[in-house]
Design a protein around this nucleic acid. Structure first.
Length: 220
DNA sequence: ATCCCGAGGG
DNA sequence: CCCTCTGGAT
């Protein structure tokens, strides 16, 4: 069992608690940053978020949400037109097709509404656990799992909380390690810290207040 | 060149 | 497990 510089074991309740507490202290107001006002808007925004910054998604959805107001609007959209409407988020052909298919599924199975259970959400084409966790937690206030995006994936490995590459297994490790009442808020803060400090290319360990509890500190 | 709040298919 | 799908920022 490896330890961090402050002597605490990696993955121990003490290490996990310190990091979670510190993330709350650093980012008291952190929240999920995709703009939305309804479950359907979050359903759309989260699908567009793949390999794309939240700022870019918000820039696109600002106009998109005015133009398309219901699942039927997306399902019945002109394919090429919808492609152009979502183009700046990347993967635009795939994403446009996915928006149409997922909204058609909502029409066929849920009367055009976004369901509010994990079981139903992961059956929607284009929706897996990450997207489902975001919708459940942020649109419905239901916490059924741990959001694992690219940041949560990277930081979980750096904290020594998982060695898995399969995000379903990473999620399982996080759910076992982090108390359930922190799953949603910890994920928001891990994401925020992942962008602000513990970024993919050049993590700023020199001014990271988690460093003494992190087994992956790099100097310079 | 490398990365960004992924999912589905091989 | 790995790869692909894509544009924009750095």
């Amino acid at each position: 069992m490896s330890t961090v510089s402050s002597g605490v074991a990696v993955g121990s309740p003490e290490q996990v608690q310190f990091i979670v507490d510190e993330l709350y202290r650093l980012y008291p107001k952190a929240r999920y940053e995709l703009d939305f006002t309804t479950p359907l808007e979050l359903f759309i925004a989260t699908q567009l978020a793949a390999q794309c910054t939240d700022e870019r998604v918000n820039a696109v959805t600002k106009d998109l949400f005015k133009k398309y107001r219901s699942a039927a609007d997306y399902a019945g959209a002109n394919p090429e037109e919808l492609e152009q409407d979502v183009k700046p988020t990347g993967f635009y052909r795939k994403k446009a097709a996915q928006l149409r298919a997922s909204c058609q599924y909502l029409l066929d199975h849920h009367n055009g509404e976004v369901p509010n259970t994990m079981q139903e959400l992961v059956r929607v084409p284009g929706v897996a656990r990450k997207t489902a966790n975001v919708i459940l937690g942020n649109a419905f206030g239901i916490v059924d799992g741990f959001i694992v995006d690219t940041h949560v994936d990277r930081l979980s490995k750096r904290f020594g909380w998982t060695k898995q590459n399969d995000i379903v297994k990473i999620e399982r490790d996080l759910m076992a390690l982090v108390p359930r009442e922190h799953w949603l808020e910890a994920a928001h803060r891990i994401i925020y810290h992942g962008r602000a400090v513990c970024n993919a290319r050049k993590p700023l360990c020199g001014n990271c207040t988690l460093a003494s509890y992190c087994p992956s500190v790099v100097t310079e």
